[in-house]
Amino acid sequence: MKIRIYYEDTDAAGIVYYANYLKFCERARSELFFEAGLSPQSESGYFVVKSLEAAYHAPACLGDMLDVGTTIVQKGAASLVLEQKVLRDGEALFSMKIKLAFLNEGRPARIPPAIQSLLSSWEKGAS
C-alpha cells in the first residue's frame, strides 16, 4: 500500500512521528481486507493486537511516498503473526512483527473460512 507523508504526520522538524508508523501498518492491514471485499471486523469476530515488536531504521519526512508491505510469518486457528515493513524507494524505514488474535464476543475464536482464504493469498505475496 502506498502512503504519502503529510504535514499532519510529522513533528515540527518535518520527520514522521514514531507512533504514526503503527497507524500506517494498521491502515495497510485494513486495506488488504477492504480490497478483498471483506472487513477486519464482522459479526463473526475481529482481530486484536496481542503483541508487537518494532524497529525504526531511518526517518520518513514530509512529502515522502512510502510503501507498506505485509507478509504472514505464522498462521494458527485463532491467531496470526505478520511482518510489516515500511519502505521508501526500497529502503527499510520501519519494520515490525505483530501477533493478532481473532476474538468473538471477547473470547478467542477460530478464524472464519473467508478470512482464512484471504490470509492464504497474503502468504503468496501481499503488498
Rank of each mutant, 00 (worst) to 15 (best):
K2D: 07
I3W: 00
I3R: 09
R4Y: 10
Y7M: 12
E8R: 12
T10A: 03
I15K: 07
V16E: 08
A19I: 03
K23D: 00
F24A: 10
C25R: 06
A28Y: 00
A28V: 06
R29A: 02
R29Q: 00
S30Q: 06
E31C: 07
L32Y: 01
E35D: 14
E35Q: 14
E35M: 15
S39R: 10
S39I: 03
P40T: 13
Q41F: 13
Q41P: 04
Q41Y: 12
S42L: 11
F47G: 03
V48K: 05
V48S: 08
V49N: 08
K50H: 15
K50F: 11
S51K: 13
L52T: 00
A54R: 04
A54H: 01
H57C: 07
A58V: 11
A58E: 10
A58W: 08
A60G: 09
C61K: 12
C61G: 12
L62V: 01
G63Q: 10
M65P: 12
G69Q: 13
T70D: 05
T71C: 10
T71P: 08
I72G: 02
Q74F: 14
L80A: 07
L80T: 07
E83R: 15
K85C: 05
V86H: 04
D89F: 13
G90K: 00
F94Y: 14
F94D: 02
S95E: 08
S95C: 08
K97R: 14
K97G: 04
I98A: 06
K99T: 15
A101N: 07
A101Q: 05
A101H: 03
N104G: 09
E105M: 09
G106I: 04
G106S: 04
G106V: 07
R107P: 13
R110F: 05
R110W: 04
I111G: 09
P112D: 04
P113D: 15
I115R: 02
L118S: 03
L119H: 04
S120K: 09
W122D: 06
W122I: 07
G125V: 00
S127P: 10
